[in-house]
Amino acid sequence: MESQPNNPLHGVKLATIMEKLHAHYGWDGLADRIGINCFKSNPTIKSSLKFLRRTPWAREKVERLYLKTKFE
C-alpha cells in the first residue's frame, strides 16, 4: 500500500465520511450545503453511498465539505 502524506482523506472510508456528516448536519443540513437529490429525496446512508460511488462530482463535493467541517 502506497503512502499518501499529502492526501488528508487517505484511509478514510466514504461510509465514515457520510456517517460523520449525517450526524453533524442531518439530511436537511446536507441538502442545504450540497444540493443533490440523494440528500433531499428519501435519503439513507446506503442510497447516498451508492450514488456517491458512481458520481465523482458529487463525491468531490461531499469530501470537500468533510474537510471543511470542524467535528467535535
Rank of each mutant, 00 (worst) to 15 (best):
K20P: 05
W27E: 06
L14R: 01
L52I: 10
K70V: 09
P43E: 01
L9H: 02
V12D: 05
T55Y: 12
F71N: 05
S47D: 10
P56N: 04
I34A: 03
M18F: 06
K68Y: 02
R59E: 07
S3I: 14
G29N: 00
K68D: 08
L9E: 06
W57H: 13
S41N: 15
L9S: 05
G35L: 09
F71W: 05
D28S: 14
Y66S: 12
L21K: 05
L67E: 08
R59P: 04
I34N: 02
I17M: 05
K61F: 01
E72D: 15
R59H: 07
K13Y: 04
A31S: 13
G11E: 10
F71P: 02
I17H: 01
T55I: 06
V62W: 06
T55C: 10
K40Q: 07
K61T: 01
G11S: 12
K40T: 06
E2C: 10
F51G: 00
E60P: 00
L49F: 06
H24T: 07
K46R: 14
S41Q: 15
W57S: 15
G26Y: 08
R64K: 10
I36A: 00
K20Y: 08
A58Y: 03
Q4E: 15
I36L: 03
S41P: 00
A58N: 04
K46W: 09
H22A: 07
